[in-house]
Design a protein around this nucleic acid. Structure first.
Length: 988
RNA sequence: GCGCCGGUAGCUCAGUUGGUUAGAGCACACGCCUGAUAAGCGUGAGGUCGGCGGUUCGAGUCCGCCCCGGCGCACCA
């Protein structure tokens, strides 16, 4: 055999004695195949049930799920919401809390009713009963619950999916009514005539949360309202008003002016004829410019107060109307004289009410629920015109039955023909729209049920609004500005209109005496309805055949004045927000799995630990939940309120189903892997708009692969490690091992703190950073030689394996709430895992081996800085082809006095010279503190360490064929001529 | 109009109570290793920290004004 052959053969032979990593844990994730399989396994083995059993009796910490609407696909944004919730629940579970997750759905409401009506051809067909229609709605909702459930489950979210809460469950409905009953008992409920937001397309009143502001172009008009008699001694004067809603002119009852403002009476020429009008002095020029008036003369200035007693002739009806004063008249836009139509404006309504222009039953509101003017007699009646009114002008016939949006332009033209229109122009402004039909909303005076937010209930000193604001302060808001936002909203919000004129919902349990028109409601009557609904569901209200009024409300539960009277059921249903806002009662306080799981802390008890939704819920679910919970139980429904922002597409546009720029969440999970999608959501700051595209999510693959591969290396080196037998005690660990554990302990502190604050992206950053720097580039790289080349059972090797084992557990656990499938897959490769599933394991805590050692952190920070300087010079020599791998080199560190002293803290020169080759991944390191390094060419000054010079030279020594190091002692053991002493001993 | 949140490398983001020469990952360039291998390691280039002014021995960080982006609230008669 030639020497070369001998060497080759020796390499082969010795290689077999090296403990190379071994693992079946695949490098490639294959999420698309593995995730569904794992989910199936979890379902079959009932992992959720096992978690519940394992945490039974533990301290509760419940995230209460806000119910998504049972309509359409669960898109990416909804999926992000569910994923974040699952992260919180899994984290709290791992912290040892009993943290059940009961998902729910919002099933009633206009959108479904709308869809079903469309399927029926636009309106309820003749002969179809409300009951039949409601059955269809329920079918529709049920269908989408099944669809969405599968979509949500694709994210790997665990929970009580087989028994979610539904707002259509009779028990849920009964609880909503119970909340109403309590409010009623405490005096919060009023029924009153008010001007409310009204969607003529949806034919229903709308809540603040159901409005979306969109830009809209309207025609704004400047209209001359002819004053009767003199104004401040001037004849023939018009009062100039401005409006963007000409369709409200028929309902005009007055003009409002500002008492303290200065007005001008001006004269100008139009169409060759002189005209006079009153306009606010401040707006005079602007109005004249816009209207193209040239020769404007001011005849007189006057205070607003001087307009007192002035009347004008209604431009349509010829009736006499007054000028009044109102404090909301401003001089920013318009003319300083405000068209006032109490039937179509909130403030106008108040003005009308203050002046007793209408009795409670009948403000002037000629517009019907579908947005058309009333017709015939009804129109006359609603307009409150004199009985003998002759429609000489033809206005009555003109608007009769017309749709307001169509009438707008026609009315403008007609006013122009009458010569009353000074000017008209297009005007773009943001205007409230119905969130479902996307049609402009109007104000319409109707009779509705309200929750009075400023009511002081018996036994309380503060109004509800203030008590809610107090509770808000006691909650924790993430991000913190959420508190300001919701406080501001609560401070400003009007009373809550809770009635809707629809079918698909829970009926407001009110009866009316057909004879007297009086409303019949008492605690007893509501309780009666509650018990029926609990048993039969809310359909009893619509089931006239089986539940006629007298059976629904027998005499014995009626208040005395209604006994024996002919009653009818009233038609209103609850605003869906009232339903979902009652979930703290219908779910948290009554569900069998949740009712004893309120969160108690520092003497304060809230019905749940957390609500987590999109930040649009500040004006939606959070707010209504707060109102109902504080009003009925005195406390907020949650301790923590976490919000996330909307998802947006690559152009930054809000993702929405209707736009089609977002895909269903399960599709993304299937195509990319649920863990990747979840990791992406956990890697980004979800408090500002979250951009979501396939490419962006694929970008999270970098982090994913880093985590997976680093972990794979750890576990691959544990193939012969049995923690029970091989784990070593703390005193057997090297300083480097302890440093690694110290850094891990630091990571535990950081990541835990981040999870506690729900800052998943900071936690993930810390984790990935740790894997990249401390593990991959530092600890793992440095440990390879000892791990591979020492004897299998050598204390050094077992020490490193002990560290790997510890660190591998920590990483798998930290990944568990986020990459739920991958962490579970990892867990199956852990030697002797502490639990059957990673999701049953306990969150890592600091202590024992995982102890922070700041002095070691400091020591190795310096060591790795030395390594960085050495690497820089090594790299140069590599590029110059002087050396290849690090073991080809010997390094001499030239040390200044200060650095030498600093190093002395960490060991004698001999100790350091023994330790550093390993750390620097070179064959030999010498410390030289005596030369004048600056003067020596072969020394290169360090760039980032004061008083350090580096010299690198190729080693002349022979490399050990087993460990590749050039230690200078190869062949010292006769039987192993190609090995260094260490390897020879190991091989034996 | 009022308010909130952002603006740091080509991209995604860190940057603690003001404190050496502003960091990381990806991407890019150049190398090494072939015993983490559809991996791993190293080096490099890349920044007027949105702009201007102020406080300070010292400002990405604190203050004021402005610009840009996002959002919320109000007004919209």
């Amino acid at each position: 055999m030639s020497n070369e052959d001998t060497l080759k053969e020796a390499k082969q032979r010795y290689k077999a004695t090296v403990h190379l990593p071994q693992t079946d844990f695949p490098m490639k994730a294959g999420l698309q195949e593995r995730e569904p399989a794992l989910q199936k396994k979890w379902a079959e083995e009932d992992l959720y049930g096992k978690i519940r059993a394992a945490r039974k009796g533990a301290k509760p910490w419940v995230l209460h799920d806000g119910p998504p609407y049972a309509n359409g696909d669960a898109h990416t944004g909804t999926g992000m919401n569910k994923s974040l919730k699952d992260m919180v629940v899994k984290f709290r579970t791992m912290q040892g809390f009993d943290s059940p997750y009961v998902p729910g759905w919002d099933c009633h409401g206009l959108p479904i009713e709308h869809k079903v009506l469309q399927e029926m051809g636009g309106k309820l067909p003749e002969g179809t009963t409300a009951l039949q229609m409601r059955e269809r709605c329920l079918e529709y909702a049920t269908k989408y619950i099944d669809i969405q459930r599968k979509q949500f489950q694709a994210t790997g979210t665990l929970g009580r999916w087989d028994e979610p809460y539904l707002t259509t469950n009779p028990s849920y409905e009964a609880n909503v009514l119970a909340v109403f009953r309590d409010l009623f008992a405490k005096g919060y409920i009023t029924r009153a005539q008010r001007s409310v937001h009204w969607s003529w397309a949806a034919q229903s009143a709308l809540a603040e949360a159901e409005l979306e502001y969109e830009d809209r172009q309207d025609t704004s008009i400047y209209l001359r309202m002819m004053a009767q008699g003199q104004v401040a001694g001037v004849d023939n004067v018009a009062l100039l008003i401005w409006t963007t809603t000409p369709w409200t002119m028929p309902a005009n009852l007055a003009i409002a002016a500002a008492k303290d403002a200065e007005y001008a009476i001006v004269e100008y020429t139009r169409d060759g004829k002189p005209e006079r009008m009153v306009v606010a002095e401040e707006l005079r020029e602007a109005v004249a410019d816009k209207s193209g008036l040239t020769d404007v003369k001011v005849l007189k200035h006057l205070r607003g107060a001087e307009l007192e007693g002035v009347n004008y002739t209604h431009p349509l009806w010829g009736t006499t109307c007054p000028v009044v004063f109102a404090d909301y008249v401003t001089l920013e836009d318009g003319t300083g004289l405000v068209h006032t139509a109490p039937g179509h404006g909130k403030e106008d309504f108040e003005t009308g009410k203050n002046h007793n222009w209408f009795n409670v039953d009948r403000p002037v509101c000629p517009v019907s629920e579908n947005g058309t003017y009333y017709t015939g007699e009804r129109l006359r009646e609603e307009l409150n015109l004199p009985k003998d009114y002759k429609d000489d002008s033809g206005w009555l016939a003109f608007i009769d039955g017309k749709h307001i949006m169509k009438a707008n332009d026609a009315i403008v033209e007609r006013l122009r023909e009458q010569g009353l229109l000074l000017h008209s122009e297009k005007f773009t402004h943001s205007y409230p729209h119905c969130w479902r039909t996307h049609t402009p909303v109007i104000f319409r005076a109707t009779e509705q049920w309200f929750v009075n937010v400023d009511h002081v209930e018996p036994g309380q000193t503060k109004p509800l609004r203030q008590r809610i604001l107090d509770e808000i302060k006691l909650c924790k808001w993430y991000p913190s500005w959420g508190e300001k936002r919701i406080s501001a909203m609560l401070e400003n919000r009007p009373d809550w209109c809770i009635s809707r004129q629809r079918y698909w919902g829970i009926p407001i349990p009110a009866f009316m005496d057909e004879g007297s028109g009086k409303v019949c409601m008492s605690q007893a009557t509501v309780d009666r309805v509650i018990s029926l609904v609990a048993e039969h569901g809310s359909n009893v209200w619509y089931d006239d055949a089986n539940w006629p009024v007298d059976k629904l409300l027998p005499d014995d539960v009626r208040p005395d004045e209604f006994k024996g009277r002919k009653l009818k059921k009233m038609d209103d249903i609850f605003d869906v927000w009232f339903e979902s806002g009652s979930s703290f009662q219908a779910v948290m306080r009554t569900d069998a799995d949740l009712k004893d799981k309120a969160l108690s802390e520092n003497g304060r008890t809230t019905h749940s630990g957390m609500y987590l939704e999109g930040d649009d819920q500040h004006r939606g679910w959070f707010q209504v939940s707060l109102i109902l919970s504080v009003a009925t139980t005195g406390v907020a429904p949650f301790r923590d309120c976490l919000t996330c922002a909307f998802v947006v597409d690559e152009k930054g546009e809000k993702g929405s189903k209707s736009k089609g720029n977002m895909w269903p969440i399960d599709q993304g999970c299937r195509d990319l892997g649920a863990d990747l999608v979840r990791l992406y959501f956990a890697s980004i700051d979800t408090s500002s708009p979250v951009p979501v595209t396939y490419d962006l999510i694929r970008g999270a693959g970098d982090s994913y692969r880093k985590l997976r591969n680093t972990w794979r290396t750890l576990v691959a080196n544990l193939f012969d490690f049995d923690p029970d037998k091989d784990a070593v005690a703390a005193d057997k660990l090297s300083q480097l091992d302890q440093w690694a554990l110290s850094r891990t302990a630091g990571l535990v502190e950081d990541v835990t703190a981040c999870f506690e604050r729900y800052e998943f992206h900071h936690a993930m950053r810390a984790l990935v950073q740790f894997c990249t720097v401390e593990l991959s580039s530092q600890y793992i790289d440095v440990c390879k030689d000892e791990l591979y080349c020492e004897a299998a059972t050598a204390p050094r090797r077992r020490a490193i394996q002990t560290v790997y084992w510890q660190v591998a557990q920590v990483i798998a656990k930290f990944m568990a709430p986020v990459t739920v499938h991958t962490a579970e897959e990892m867990w199956q490769y852990m030697p002797k895992p502490e639990t059957e599933s990673v999701h049953l394991a306990l969150w890592p805590t600091v202590g024992g081996l995982l102890t922070r050692k700041p002095e070691l952190d400091k020591r190795f920070k310096l060591m790795f800085r030395l390594k960085a300087e050495s690497d820089r010079v090594l790299d140069r020599l590599r590029k110059e082809k002087v050396i290849g791998k690090g073991y080809d080199a010997n390094v001499t560190l030239g040390l200044g006095n200060d650095l030498m002293k600093e190093l002395a803290n960490y060991g004698t020169p001999e100790q350091l010279q023994a330790e550093l080759p390993g750390l620097l991944n070179v064959s030999k390191v010498a410390l030289d503190a005596s030369s004048d390094h600056a003067a020596l060419q072969e020394f290169e000054p360090a760039t980032d360490v004061q008083g350090l010079w580096v010299k690198v030279e190729a080693s002349a020594e022979q490399a050990c064929v087993r460990c590749f190091r050039r230690t200078g002692d190869v062949g010292s053991v006769k039987e192993h001529e190609f090995l260094c002493t260490r390897c020879a001993k190991v091989v034996g």
